[in-house]
Design a protein around this nucleic acid. Structure first.
Ligand SMILES: [Mn+2]
Ligand SMILES: [Mn+2]
Ligand SMILES: [Zn+2]
Ligand SMILES: [Zn+2]
Lengths: 142, 142
DNA sequence: AATACTATTGATAATCATTATCATCATGAC
DNA sequence: GTCATGATGATAATGATTATCAATAGTATT
């Protein structure tokens, strides 16, 4: 996995440096989590104490631009990053309005919608679907 | 329309002030647009020259909280506001990756998905679906 | 191996949308 | 009118992200 990403980086004339490897490891170790830049910074500092926040932002955005990471915002004014799914499209998210927990969801129903959009002359590249809900745990607690 | 909203406000012990009326008029005059707080400020100042940016933010958020406005972010680091649809759910958005234009789209395919989510114990309140695409105009221009 | 070139880094300053603060004003209830 | 409370505008503060810049590291060229 790291090897494949290294090649992806080098295809764009980027180098696999120690800092980038550390950040990548953090993202792989936390697969399934949605980490903010600050959270990545702290975890990366366990491997590389002097890494700076600017490098974290730069690396996360670079990795997102080559589709290694997915960058999204869950309505809290800061971006979060996670490893991309292997296939083409990204999963959807269910965000609990009470505890903030994020549940993931696979689905391909959107293909229909995308075809309808493309039939109107668009070229669809990506989509982003979020559900706002109360999660089972929070509903029970009430 | 303004009357109904005034009642909604007063139900929450809020007053319909001149500033709030001005902001509401701006949103009604620009139905279908997705305005930033700053854009609302400038348009509102045509009606009320001394209105301040803090009041705009306060009012927009208040109106969003009572579901008169819909607040969303189209990946540019700032929120935009628009009048809510009359029915229950909000339409979807297609954002052009080139010119940034926003196209709207009606659909109820998501009901299936929501039912699937609710069958797992969630209570779905809202959703947010965006497509990132190249619009017909931009595709032709190339 | 020395040089040249370019990518990368960390510290720090700058940016910019949004929020908080606070003194003042307006309104409605009594 | 008095009182309580909501509303406003100016301004400061916040906080995430970006820009700047001097220093370093890696790669290609000679
Ligand atoms: Mn996810
Ligand atoms: Mn819209
Ligand atoms: Zn929950
Ligand atoms: Zn376009």
């Amino acid at each position: 996995m790291k090897q494949k990403i290294k090649e992806k980086l080098e295809d764009s004339n980027y180098r696999m440096t120690g800092q980038r490897a550390a950040i990548l490891e953090v993202m792989i170790d936390n697969q399934g989590e949605h980490l903010s830049a600050e959270e990545v910074l702290y975890k990366a500092r366990e491997k590389m104490p002097n890494i700076g926040i600017a490098t974290v932002y730069r690396t996360l955005d670079k990795l997102a631009s080559i589709e290694v990471l997915y960058k999204s915002m869950f309505d809290e004014g800061r971006y979060r990053y996670e490893l991309c799914d292997e296939g083409t499209h990204q999963h959807h998210h269910i965000i609990c309005l009470d505890c903030g927990n994020i549940t993931e969801m696979e689905d391909d129903l959107l293909n229909n919608l995308e075809q309808r959009i493309e039939s109107k002359g668009f070229k669809v590249i990506d989509h982003d679907l979020k559900f706002y809900a109360y999660c089972p745990a929070c509903r029970n607690r009430k």
